[in-house]
Simulated assay, not measured.
Amino acid sequence: MTPTRKKRLIMVLLVALGVSLATAIFLTAFKDNIMFFKSPTEVAAQDFPVNRNFRLGGMVKDGSMQRIPDSLKVQFIVTDFAADVTVEYEGILPDLFREGQGVVTIGQMSEDDLFIAEEVLAKHDENYMPPEVADALEAAKPQSKEYE
């Protein structure tokens, strides 16, 4: 092998190694920052990431909202009409948040089956619902007659 070919081969191998390393770093960072969406049925079946934030979406169950006196803490139930999850949030709720409306919360499950939300997102108009929430509600609806 001539010295010129040897230099080219080394350069090609270094470039390939660099691209591989950059791809590995990108995929690792992407994996750590991905946020899963789960429905209350999936959470009830213990199908959620442990000790990691994820999105929980569904409808706020009518009559479930309870405010803790002298604080900004509120508890409510998120349902997909097949299962319910109790959510606790401390902070100011969005203006459009109310019972019977779609909601997406971001947080993680505590050890006592309570979802501790860091952020609450309410649907922003009458016709919009996040696709994940709509799919989860549609999948759960035929299984339950309680809300019809």
Rank of each mutant, 00 (worst) to 15 (best):
V104N: 01
E118S: 03
Y128L: 04
E119I: 14
D125I: 00
L114F: 05
F97E: 00
S110N: 11
S110C: 04
L96I: 06
T105Y: 08
P130I: 03
V103E: 03
F115Q: 04
V120D: 01
V103M: 08
R98W: 04
V103W: 05
N127P: 01
P130C: 02
Y128P: 00
R98I: 02
D113P: 00
L114M: 14
A122D: 05
E119V: 15
G102M: 01
Y128K: 03
F97I: 00
V103F: 10
M109K: 11
L96Y: 08
H124I: 03
L114A: 04
M109L: 13
H124P: 01
I106W: 06
D125F: 00
R98P: 00
M129V: 12
S110D: 13
S110F: 06
L121Y: 15
E111N: 10
E126T: 04
D112P: 00
P130S: 09
P130A: 12
G107Y: 00
T105K: 07
T105N: 10
L121E: 10
M129S: 12
F115P: 04
R98S: 14
L96Q: 13
L121H: 15
E111F: 07
V120Y: 02
E111Q: 08
Q101C: 03
D125S: 04
F115T: 05
M109V: 13
G100V: 05
S110K: 10
L114N: 03
